[in-house]
Simulated assay, not measured.
Amino acid sequence: MNNPDPKSNSLWTKDFILTSLSNLFLFFSFHLLTPILPVYVVEMGGDKFAAGMVVGIFTVSALVIRPFAGGALDILDQKKVLFFGLIVCALSVISYEWMVFVSFILVVRTVQGIGWGIVTTTYTTMVSDFIVAKRRAEGMGYFGLSINMGMAFGPLIGIWLMVEFGFNYVFLIAAISILLSMILSQFIHYQPKPFKKANSEKVSFIEKRALLPAVMVMMVTLAHGGILSSLTLFGQETGIINVGWFFLASAFSMMVSRPTAGKVADRIGKNFVIVPGALTLVIGLLILSY
């Protein structure tokens, strides 16, 4: 792996910036589609359960593939793993234009989830290697801004494109965004992995120390997933033309808080970030329910 010089405090290296930009275009593509796919399913004749499934089935397939993607990154060339995942994502997005049945949409969404799980696992692994250990939380906070920026503008632009030009334009822009992510990824410096002999020791996919953070992230994303899958349809029922403004406001708040949260976690401790963050999330969800 491409480990940073431990004597250097540099965070904004070329590889860190390129990885963040490439990740930005990937998440922009994802958030372009997220609010409009439930509407697409309903207009194709599906019910609200099927509309929710386009989010659920995507998440499940991404979840299942992640441990295998992580294992592949330990033994295979990161560049090849990343390129494969991006190809799967791009082909899946392009395929939405030719869907004639809701069942086909769900199949393609499953395949897209596999590509998504591979790519996001790869980007996170790569960027953690580019950040010096003592600035890791801060660096991951800045890297997270690429996710927030995609979330800020993706839904807003996606819904606008859907209303003004139709679904096919959304799929086209989403595919182009993945293509840009693919192009940028070719300029990232990948160090070849040393050959590894097969290890006879038993390998487990479960790291006990990661269980508590994993459960906490799962609970947060369950709530967030419900909002993603239902908010656009809710907006249509209540007469809100573009609920993308909700995502813009949410992403802006995260962009403001992430850098500070990373520095606090590095210098004082992660609990000083997790507890206030969880409380504000609960308050926000309660306000949204009314």
Rank of each mutant, 00 (worst) to 15 (best):
251 A>T: 02
233 L>I: 15
230 S>K: 11
195 F>V: 12
44 M>S: 14
61 S>V: 01
242 N>T: 08
73 L>Y: 08
219 M>C: 12
151 M>E: 13
244 G>Q: 04
275 V>C: 01
290 Y>K: 12
163 V>Q: 13
152 A>V: 05
153 F>E: 00
193 K>F: 01
75 I>S: 14
12 W>E: 01
18 L>Y: 11
27 F>R: 02
193 K>T: 04
34 T>N: 10
189 H>D: 11
160 W>H: 09
8 S>M: 02
73 L>P: 10
93 V>R: 08
249 A>C: 13
161 L>G: 10
53 M>P: 05
269 G>E: 04
226 G>D: 05
141 G>D: 09
172 L>E: 11
220 V>M: 13
153 F>R: 02
163 V>D: 13
103 S>H: 06
56 G>S: 15
234 F>E: 11
34 T>Q: 14
251 A>L: 03
175 A>N: 05
149 M>I: 14
6 P>R: 04
244 G>N: 10
22 S>V: 03
7 K>Y: 07
41 V>W: 06
86 L>C: 09
31 H>N: 15
208 K>L: 10
181 S>P: 03
22 S>K: 01
102 V>N: 03
186 Q>Y: 05
176 I>D: 03
100 V>T: 15
102 V>I: 00
128 S>Q: 07
86 L>K: 11
31 H>E: 07
227 I>W: 05
39 V>A: 14
165 F>M: 12
167 F>H: 13
199 N>I: 08
186 Q>R: 13
283 I>L: 14
282 V>L: 15
130 F>A: 11
50 A>R: 11
213 P>G: 10
109 R>Q: 12
25 F>I: 00
13 T>F: 02
22 S>W: 06
210 A>E: 12
73 L>F: 04
267 R>Q: 14
269 G>F: 02
34 T>C: 00
140 M>T: 09
39 V>T: 15
228 L>P: 00
196 K>W: 00
4 P>H: 07
267 R>G: 00
37 L>M: 15
143 F>G: 12
9 N>G: 14
61 S>Y: 06
271 N>H: 11
115 G>W: 01
230 S>I: 06
262 G>W: 01
266 D>I: 04
289 S>Q: 04
93 V>S: 09
129 D>V: 00
90 A>S: 13
194 P>A: 12
96 Y>E: 06
192 P>T: 07
258 R>A: 03
216 M>D: 04
289 S>N: 12
134 K>E: 14
262 G>R: 05
137 A>C: 00
157 I>E: 07
92 S>G: 09
197 K>N: 12
70 G>I: 08
169 Y>F: 11
107 V>S: 04
201 E>W: 00
108 V>P: 04
34 T>E: 11
104 F>M: 14
155 P>K: 04
70 G>W: 01
86 L>P: 07
142 Y>E: 01
241 I>Y: 08
43 E>W: 01
29 S>V: 01
274 I>Q: 06
170 V>R: 07
127 V>K: 10
101 F>R: 14
246 F>L: 11
134 K>W: 04
106 L>Y: 02
116 W>P: 00
